[in-house]
Design a protein around this nucleic acid. Structure first.
Lengths: 332, 332
DNA sequence: ATGAAAGCGCTAACAG
DNA sequence: CTGTTAGCGCTTTCAT
């Protein structure tokens, strides 16, 4: 059944049926009711492709995500999808991994499907290098970056102030008397977030009068084992540190395992406040980077942008430290 | 730029252009090349909506997922999306949660978007109760159930033999001399998988000559704390058990926390072999339910079904036990 | 408030 | 091998 059938059965023209489909107010109450009744009887649904062709939109947004199997990205996508759906948009998901070629390819696929906007989740920019694909995409549809930043027209960034969070981590440890802090970061996440976090650490050290010790800043592969091995090695080499800050919960967990094996129990602060922070024992104190705030904000901004309104090109949200067993702040 | 523009600039008709778009072999090599050249110059991409309207397909499949923020479902969706994309299909994602109304709603949204097929991931059926929405959906597009089963025409089920896995768990524990086994299961997951697992446990008990003790079978809410509290209470009430099997890693983790607090160290087997099994210490032995097999299988079957081929309506894959620190099999 | 009709961009049968 | 043309189902001016 199509719009013509409905029109015929309701004794009106297709134009009128189209109007009620689109909630056009200029239809008399009675004819509207009659048409709706016929639609209901027939179980009619407008053909989405035809509508898309006419309106040049199927109300879909693309999410380009590094990997939805990752706890953090998965949570972001979950929040975004629900938020978008609540506003009448469906989500086309692409898990691109982190090779640039794959990201470009996914971006093109989304554009070809004519999505109304694209949200990037953890599909980090190659710092300073080639971001032309983003420029190109932003020329076609508004782009939204979750926890990343790029100064591109028609691009909106919503992020957590991770630099500040890391500085605060250093401050808290310092105030607890810990000056020798091991910082573990993810060598893969070398885009916006990674740089921000490291800068935050460095500023924290400076602000608290601690001399930066390059021997205490370690890049490791993303994973439990790499972090565990690195920390074990440091321990065996008698490298001196009294607390650990990690750029990712997973690294903190690896570090914790190493400490456990060596019978140690040092303060640790993780990052992302993911499920695994609650799983381990002692439970991991971790920085929450506020996905529950960032994602709804993003869907709101997206909606405003698409419905003709305006949105700020950058929003920065403060992080919050979730204190569990591996570290607690002193009263400041 | 549209197909007419390309046709004009290439000095051919739109039909010929359409043919090269669709890889129709009946185009001479030279004209094809000329047309492709013009397309490239213009950066032309066929309008997906118009194609969709003509072909009645945009090559998109819907994934209805309980929650992509869940490690297990997230991994499934990740594998499925990549598999589908490799076969030329994009994915529309809906995270429905587990209320029936929401699932129906999502299902309708996907159907309205005219997806070519729908995959259900953990959006369990309400056992025995109303599955008419699935029947209705299957009447429109092929349905694929990951780790769930329903005997509905045009519905294909790919699942892990979790009953057998649970029986094997009991056998392994029994062979290790453990007869008093506490079984913790998720009270939410009361659909196909939950029943299968419980049945597997019961058969395992029978097969190994163990009398079922209702006091050792416990349904708890999905989460670390509920499991932890339950096990703590059992411990404090001196309930006697020498090993724990859980229907979900998260419950196993909760149980482990309780044991730790009581200074105990009993064998534990979790389920799903998720990241958290590796995170905790001692690391959790866990049943792998083979998403890495199941998901590619599903995308293959989906592809075959859509491209006119046939696919079996049910595929059962054997699970495998991943042994870590909380339990190891004896040589049988 | 409603209808007639011209698109939207592409596909596919048919004719040559 | 290529072109003509009638749809696909809906939206949207422009009349009335």
């Amino acid at each position: 059944m199509n719009i013509h059938g409905i029109a015929e059965r309701a004794g009106v023209s297709v134009a009128t049926v189209s109007r009620v489909i689109n909630n056009n107010p200029s239809v008399s109450h009675t004819t509207r009711e009659k048409i709706l009744a016929v639609m209901r009887e027939e179980g009619y649904t407008p053909n989405a492709f035809a509508r898309g062709l006419g309106l040049n939109s199927m109300r879909m947004v693309g999410i380009l995500c590094r990997d939805v199997a990752n706890l953090f990205y998965g949570q972001a996508v979950s929040l975004l999808e629900r938020g978008l759906r609540a506003k009448g948009y469906n989500t086309i998901l692409c898990c691109s991994g982190l090779e640039l070629e794959s990201k470009k390819n996914c971006l093109n696929l989304l554009l070809q499907k004519k999505v109304d906007a694209i949200i990037l989740v953890g599909s980090a920019l190659i710092e300073k290098s080639d971001n032309s694909h983003l420029n190109d995409a932003a020329a076609r549809v508004p782009l939204f970056l979750i926890n990343s930043y790029a100064d591109i027209p028609n691009t909106y960034c919503v992020l957590c102030d991770e630099a500040e969070a890391m500085s605060a981590n250093v401050r808290h440890m310092s105030q607890a008397g810990i000056k020798d802090i091991l910082y573990l970061h993810d060598m893969i996440d070398w885009a916006w977030a990674g740089t921000q976090k490291l800068n935050g650490i460095k500023r924290g050290l400076i602000d608290n009068g601690i001399t930066e010790n390059p021997g205490l800043i370690h890049a490791v592969s993303h994973g439990i084992e790499p972090a565990k091995e690195r920390v074990s090695r440091l321990l065996e080499n008698s490298v001196n540190f009294a607390g650990i800050i990690a750029s990712e919960d997973i690294l903190a967990v690896g570090a914790q395992k190493a400490l456990l094996e060596h019978g140690l129990n040092l303060p640790i602060i993780g990052f992302n406040n993911s499920l695994i922070a609650q799983c381990v024992s002692p439970a991991l104190t971790s920085v929450d980077n506020m996905l529950r705030t960032i994602c709804p904000l993003t869907t709101d901004m997206l909606y405003n942008t698409l419905e003709g309104g305006k949105a700020p090109s950058k929003v920065l949200v403060a992080a919050s430290l979730v204190e569990r067993e591996t570290f607690r702040r002193r009263a400041e």
